[in-house]
Structures are given as C-alpha cells and as structure tokens.
C-alpha cells in the first residue's frame, strides 16, 4: 500500500507479490517471493516537488536453502 501523503517528505518503499515482515531494523524487511515480485520506490507530491532526493535501494537475495 502506497501512502497518500507523506508528512516526512521521504521516499517510500513498497513490494508487491511477496510476503514481507520486519527485518532487524526499522528501514528494512525480509520478503518471501513465491512468484515474481515487484519493488516500488515512490516519492509523494507533498512538499517541494522539484527537489531531487538521492538514495540507495539495497537488495540482498538470500542463498537458496
């Protein structure tokens, strides 16, 4: 679910097509993809729209068990 607004003016992450749960810190989570999944990075229109925000999306794919 993507947020409608964003009071913190920070980009959000959403994952579709996977079961996700919290990981060891507040910014990350573990997901189980039983089929193809999609990851979205979304930045709301709230605030200064012209301001570019740079960040890094880090993905770690666990080895197969």
């Amino acid at each position: 679910m993507l947020p409608d607004g964003d009071e913190q003016h920070m980009p959000r992450l959403a994952i579709v097509g996977a079961y996700c749960g919290p990981a060891l810190d507040t910014h990350s989570f573990f997901c189980l993809a039983k089929r193809d999944a999609s990851v979205f990075v979304y930045h709301s229109r709230v605030g200064d729209q012209t301001r570019e925000v740079n960040g890094t999306l880090a993905v770690w794919r666990q080895p197969q068990p």
Partner: peptide, 15 residues
C-alpha cells in the same frame, strides 16, 4: 521453498 529478499533504503539524502 523460494528465495527470500531483503530490501532496504540505505541513505536518503539531498545534500
């Protein structure tokens, strides 16, 4: 069993 993923936005910085 499928692979699991870890997603993370590392740093968000404008300056």
């Amino acid at each position: 069993m499928q692979s699991s993923y870890l997603f993370y936005i590392l740093t968000v910085m404008s300056a």
